[in-house]
C-alpha cells in the first residue's frame, strides 16, 4: 500500500536517498528491503542520504541504528550522510546519539569513507 523508498546500486555500494516525509511503515519496509538487498547483491557498503529529511525522530533514528547493526552483521558498512544541523541538534536534545552509525557530511564524503574502509580491509592479511 505505502510507497517504498528506492534502493540504488552503484558498484559495491547500495544507495538510499530519502526524499519524502516517511510514514512509519515505509521506514520499516526500508529496513527490511535493505537487509534483503545487501544479501542479494553482496554489497559491501550502504549509504543512506538524509539531506532532504527535515526531521529525524526516535523511530527513524532507531531504523538508522538498526540498519547499521544489521548491515554490519551482513558484512556491509553503513554510512548516513547529509544530516542537517537542525536535525543533529534535535537528535542530541532528544537523547539519541545513533551509537554505531557512521556519518559523513556529504554523499561524496560518505562514498569516500566506504572506499577507504574497503581498501583498509582488503589490505589486511
Amino acid at each position: 500500500m505505502s510507497d517504498r523508498v528506492p534502493i540504488l546500486r552503484i558498484g559495491q555500494v547500495l544507495l538510499v536517498s530519502i526524499q519524502i516525509d516517511l510514514e512509519d511503515q515505509t521506514v520499516l519496509d526500508l529496513q527490511d528491503d535493505l537487509a534483503e538487498r545487501i544479501v542479494a547483491t553482496g554489497a559491501g557498503g550502504v549509504v543512506i542520504d538524509i539531506t532532504a529529511l527535515e526531521i529525524v525522530d526516535s523511530f527513524v533514528g532507531r531504523m538508522l541504528a538498526n540498519t547499521a547493526a544489521i548491515s554490519r552483521m551482513l558484512d556491509a558498512e553503513t554510512v548516513v550522510v547529509g544530516m542537517r544541523p537542525a536535525v543533529a541538534i534535535t537528535l542530541v536534545e532528544l537523547g539519541l546519539s545513533l551509537g554505531g552509525v557512521r556519518t559523513a557530511l556529504t554523499l561524496d564524503k560518505g562514498l569516500a569513507l566506504l572506499e577507504r574502509d574497503r581498501t583498509a580491509r582488503t589490505a589486511r592479511p
Binding site: 512509519d24 527535515e54 526531521i55 529525524v56 525522530d57 526516535s58 523511530f59 542537517r84 544541523p85 537542525a86 536535525v87 541538534i89 534535535t90 536534545e93 532528544l94
Partner: peptide
C-alpha cells in the same frame, strides 16, 4: 527559528505516534 521548528515538529512526531 529553523532549529526550534525542527525540535517542535520532532516532539509532535513522537507524541502523535
Amino acid at each position: 527559528s529553523l532549529v526550534d521548528q525542527t525540535k517542535l515538529v520532532t516532539a509532535a512526531s513522537e507524541l502523535a505516534r
